[in-house]
Design a protein around this nucleic acid. Structure first.
Lengths: 196, 196, 196, 196
DNA sequence: TATGAATGAGGGTTCATTCAT
DNA sequence: GATGAATGAACCCTCATTCAT
């Protein structure tokens, strides 16, 4: 029900964000022009400027919306004891977020050069640093710090490098998580294959 | 000895490559213009076109020059037995290459979006796949394949994520290698902390 | 007395004129956008169009309101005998008007290029011509016509060029008037320094 | 001799300046687009950018070229004794310059609002102040300072306000100069009509 | 080995204006 | 008495590329 005249009245802002992220992730930030976004939405470029101050503003707004869960995760993690189980929970949730907001994270990974002067670059790096902090023991030896870093990157890399690999996505996600666990387990001081 | 008039006569092509890679790595491929490169070399844009057919040609030529060692490594690896020591040697050499040609690899990592249509993208992916093949056992379970993937990514990530961290570079490189070894060790079927 | 809900209900039109003139005088007509005016008033651009047909309409309406005194002065002058005292009175009153409506006159002086196609340009020039007519004797020699012109321009120039100079504003205004008198005195056929 | 292929090879820069000044003076700076300039020259907009860094750069370059004589005049004046004859010579030469570079000065007068942020504004004001300094006696009373100011403005105003008036241009210029002399004469301490 | 001069395509952005509500 | 949403036209500017010299 509702007017059929303006089938999408009111949600233009959201539609811009959706299409923009899709294109940014697909082609890269620099190579995606506002003209392209506008055409795909069947509006004029000027319409984009009614909803956003600039091209950068579009990606920033998307970033803020989609990375809130990471903020929440960091906040949650800081309130928890630094147990192994907490760390695993962090990895588990983070993996889930990456899956849920895959295009955004793909964008972040593939456009690091653009990020550098995009008002997102810094926030992104900070968030990664915050996550590492949740995983690392204070004053851990260098190799353990590398393990934690690697645990996070494994999740990222797994997400994208395995995209074209055969196999059930959920299964792949679990394999990635397993390796990721292993790495923090070791860093946390646990030996042996797996943690059971 | 030698003309003092044209102190760099004849090596313009090389100088273009050097400056270009420097800028590409620093600012990204799309955001680096030929004007900028030419200005920094104190030649005209047209001069670049005397030496290279296009902007893409510049980066392709650099890529080819700098990634030959990886080709060689792959060739070497294929001629070796698939032992653990071979795998470790692969990682060791690869790590060294990343250090030696850091700007190129930084460029590759941060400009994946640009790479997609750059005639480099595919070769780069192939090389990564070749390396993985050297590390993985045929028909290994998914989790072991992830370990090998992760071993490679750890080297990459360590390279860049630890750049600003305190500590001796060489020491950091060794810590990264250690974790990397660990991962292929496991994938190879070795258990226990360390490799003894 | 009066609603406290809408403290300025009904005077929006006036407020638009005030803010617009302020900005036009400060930044120039072309460089002042309706967005800017609307923002400063905390209304939308569309609101401006409820009160005025166009951007030009805004400045035209202000012009009409603020230059009525000049029309009156011309009308008055035409009804007077063309004595020296009349001419001085014209200068005196004109000087006062410039002071009272300084922003408008500043705008007129600094935006002559814009005025050319602004439906104000002609009226403004006419008014200046009318004033000159009040000061000039018919068939006066060229040099005397220049004196009258100069008398008027002195008032204009004095207004703006002396703005940053030290000294009491009223005193400056009188100095300007004195020189202006001198010029019409001569044109009127009076010799000697001053007219006392 | 000379190729007939490229009838104006080498003088494009100059031609841009000529056409630009013509249009800037005619329509104003803001209302003249680079497209317009390019079209009139039958080149592309991009060609303008080969010769000038920006729109502002075009007007700045013209300004510098055309106001050098004023700089020279100021320099000359400062080396002269501050006699009445020197002052008259300043006015005489200045008047000549205004005539010679009329479009530039028309532009300066009619686009003051644009000048404000044009990197020319300040230099222009300074030059005017320098000229005033040549005419004014140090510590002169306010009214005499106004006379000098007025002398300069008379030349400006005369230039443009009398453009449409009947009469021989040279004759008009002399009438303007006469009034201008009168004003500095008085300021210099000379009484009586004319200077005899 | 280069340069000088130019182009065509496209970039992001801003503007005055409109109109249904 | 106003707003929300959008448009069309134009803006300045930058880019990779070309080609005669």
């Amino acid at each position: 029900m509702g007017s059929t005249q303006h089938p999408r009245r009111g949600d233009t802002r959201q539609r811009i964000q959706d299409v923009a992220l899709e294109l940014f992730a697909e082609q890269g930030y620099e190579k995606t022009s506002l003209r392209e976004i506008a055409e795909r939405l069947d509006v004029t470029k000027a319409a984009l400027y009614y909803h956003f101050k600039s091209k950068e503003d579009i990606i920033v707004s998307i970033f803020k919306d989609l990375t809130r869960p990471v903020d929440d995760l960091v906040a949650w993690g800081r309130g928890q004891p630094r147990t192994l189980e907490t760390k695993r929970e962090v990895l588990r949730r983070y993996s889930r977020m990456l899956t849920d907001a895959a295009p955004m994270f793909r964008f972040l990974q593939e456009n690091q050069a653009s990020l550098r002067d995009l008002r997102i670059g810094a926030p992104f790096k900070e968030r990664m640093a915050d996550l590492r902090e949740l995983l690392e023991e204070p004053d851990a030896p260098l190799s353990d710090r590398v393990r934690c870093l690697s645990a996070l990157f494994t999740i990222h890399a797994g997400m994208f490098a395995l995209k074209d690999a055969e196999g059930d996505p959920e299964e792949k996600r679990e394999a990635v998580l397993e390796v990721s666990y292993e790495l923090v387990d070791r860093a946390h001081g646990v030996t042996g294959r797996g943690s059971e």
